[in-house]
Design a protein around this nucleic acid. Structure first.
Length: 197
DNA sequence: ACCCAGATCATCT
DNA sequence: GATGATCTGGGTC
């Protein structure tokens, strides 16, 4: 089946890792069974110097604390009623993270359908950061977990065909950071999220 | 295009 | 202790 990647994998520079995570498999071995999705969209948040990052200016709160830890840790946070999941990146005390914005359903289709609602077309199950956490059953309980460990981990996958880059989504008030090309997605993949105008 | 659900945090009072 | 903003999604208009 799927095997977790080693901790060393997550030590790559943040932008490189954001690009490389495309095609990898996000796996959750939940109580009901295995659900997995192929990562097709990510966004890098570059820590102290990035106005769009929670950790801008090394802001350290209960929420951002895990971003200061070692690479490969799970950073989850709530956006209104939704949970969003990030991969912590960079050495300790460099509070960088990569937001997983979209995945392509691979395994456990029936569990995803159940959690997202059978009336919804498959394309809309996981094409957004709040949607994929719900589809895969990822909750705030995983904050501080490590992506090399079951039951929530990242595994080797199928290489991406082509990668596009562009500005990040939904960071309107972040001044100069608004235009940084820190969003990565697999070109023409139908499970990539819609840009928010 | 708007509305609202409501966790977390900064910035008030 | 209250308010306003946010890395969003679903429903409705």
């Amino acid at each position: 089946m799927f095997e977790p990647l080693k901790a060393k994998y997550f030590e790559a520079p943040t932008l490189e890792l954001s690009r490389d995570l495309l095609g990898k498999i996000l796996v959750h071995e939940g109580p009901e069974g295995i659900v997995a999705g192929r990562i097709v969209e990510t966004e890098a948040y570059m820590g102290a110097e990035d106005r769009a990052a929670h950790s801008f200016g090394n802001r350290r709160t209960k929420r951002t604390e895990v971003m200061f830890g070692r690479s490969g840790l799970v950073y989850t946070y709530q956006m209104h009623t939704h949970t969003l999941v990030n991969v912590v990146s960079g050495p300790e005390d460099e509070p960088r993270a990569i937001l997983i914005r979209a995945v392509e359903p691979i395994e456990g289709i029936e569990f995803m359908a159940e959690r997202r609602g059978h009336h919804m077309p498959m394309k809309q199950w996981t094409n957004g950061p709040g949607k994929l956490t719900k589809a895969l059953g990822i909750t705030m309980d995983y904050n501080g977990h490590h992506f090399t460990e079951r039951p929530l981990y990242i595994a080797e996958g199928e290489a991406v065909h082509a990668v596009s880059t562009g500005p990040r989504v939904g960071i309107g008030n972040s001044q100069e950071a608004v235009h940084y090309p820190y969003r990565f997605w697999e070109s023409d993949n139908p499970f990539v999220s819609k840009f928010r105008p």
